[in-house]
């Protein structure tokens, strides 16, 4: 993928603008802090490009919107699910771990998947080594793998990616 999105300079500008928007919201549009905000936004964007170089994958606007909806509903279910288990006298949990290989590519898609999985029902991203993700499950009797695969499909759609149909082999 050698689109414009992989150029560090483009990433620096895009990230600076996004951070400046955050600054604008944080200061409630106050103009007196704007100069300071520009300096901070550019410095932070520069650091972030050094630490997390652009991977060339970009969120599609519609895909991102659909993903946000999916994520919010799933994380609400996650909260209610854990709350129900905690309040139940028998405490129905059966912690355990599964390891599976991810099909979304390295970079932002894999990062987004690992982070959102931690806020979805029954899963907690514990270890990410290459394409091997170890997920801690609150209840191993649930079909955790199916949930992870569904989340993976949603992430792929948010980035406009097509997943390889066979299991395992990413890239």
């Amino acid at each position: 993928m050698t689109s414009v999105a992989t150029l560090p300079a483009v990433a620096l500008i895009v990230r600076s603008i996004l951070l400046l928007l955050v600054w604008w919201v944080l200061t409630l549009g106050d103009r007196s802090g704007l100069g300071f905000g520009v300096v901070v936004a550019v410095l932070v964007a520069w650091r972030s490009v050094r630490l997390f170089p652009p991977s060339g994958y970009r969120l599609r606007p519609l895909g991102a919107l659909l993903f946000t909806g999916y994520f919010l509903s799933r994380s609400a279910v996650a909260g209610l699910d854990v709350a129900r288990r905690l309040l139940s006298p028998s405490l129905p949990v059966k912690p355990g771990e599964i390891t599976l290989s991810l099909r979304v590519p390295d970079g932002s898609p894999r990062w987004l998947l690992a982070n959102t999985l931690s806020l979805m029902p029954g899963t907690l991203s514990a270890l990410l080594e290459g394409d091997r993700l170890t997920v801690h499950c609150l209840d191993t009797r649930m079909d955790v793998e199916q949930d992870v695969r569904e989340a993976e499909r949603q992430v792929a759609r948010a980035f406009g990616l097509r997943l390889p149909s066979a299991d395992g082999a990413a890239q």
Binding site: S75, G79, V82, L86, L124
Partner: peptide, 9 residues
């Protein structure tokens, strides 16, 4: 699990 998910909701 309990802290992250329930607190976020």
């Amino acid at each position: 699990h309990a802290l992250t998910k329930v607190d976020n909701l």
